[in-house]
Amino acid sequence: MYAITDDTLLWEAVVSGDERAFEEVYQSAFPTLYEYGMRFIRDEAFVEESIQQLFVKVWTNKATLTNVRRIRPYLLFSLRTLIYNKIRDAKRKRISELDADYDFELEFSPESLLIRKETDAERLRSLQAALDQLTPRQKEIIFLRYYQGLDYKDITEIMDISLKGAYKLTARSLDTLRGILGLSVVAVILLLKTHAAK
């Protein structure tokens, strides 16, 4: 997030055909991409093949990828699109909306948390019940936001949703999320608008 310059230099090296820079990009991104892919489809061979195809595509198209500014969000977006296309092709049918037909695994386990008070334990149980109601998309947002530390602008780009769409998605889920996260509707909308204005 703060290493924009490093990203730019590293990516320039990849674009110019530097194999060591290419491996550096791969090695630092592999665990994240692996986890992200596995959360879509719990099939290691499938996910690894997707990551392989992604990087081969990056190498063969490197001459046209000069406008990549931040590597991590770009790779996440590309892997997501690739997996989506593979699933669609495998099912031999057209899916207009990915979330109509995809899963995103994110199971919360509050029992691992250190409980300070009994009231907390009670609250956690109700929170988990609410969290279990989250849609795959909402889970994906949480994963990208909190597990990967990405901002909302990155998330809208990765998930290929417009800010308007993100707002709609957020608004729909806000009743759930607000209760769990304590996020206010106004806070989320302001946040999205701030990003849109950039």
């Binding site: 592999f30 986890e35 290691e44 690894e48 990551i51 199971e107 948390l113 956690l124 597990y147």
Partner: peptide
């Protein structure tokens, strides 16, 4: 902090140590 810990409580999925090299 509690909420965030809950959100972050999902079991992480990590590749075994050999996978990165194999795929590379």
């Amino acid at each position: 902090e509690t909420t965030l810990k809950l959100l972050l409580s999902a079991r992480r999925i990590s590749p075994t140590s050999d996978r990165a090299g194999v795929v590379w």
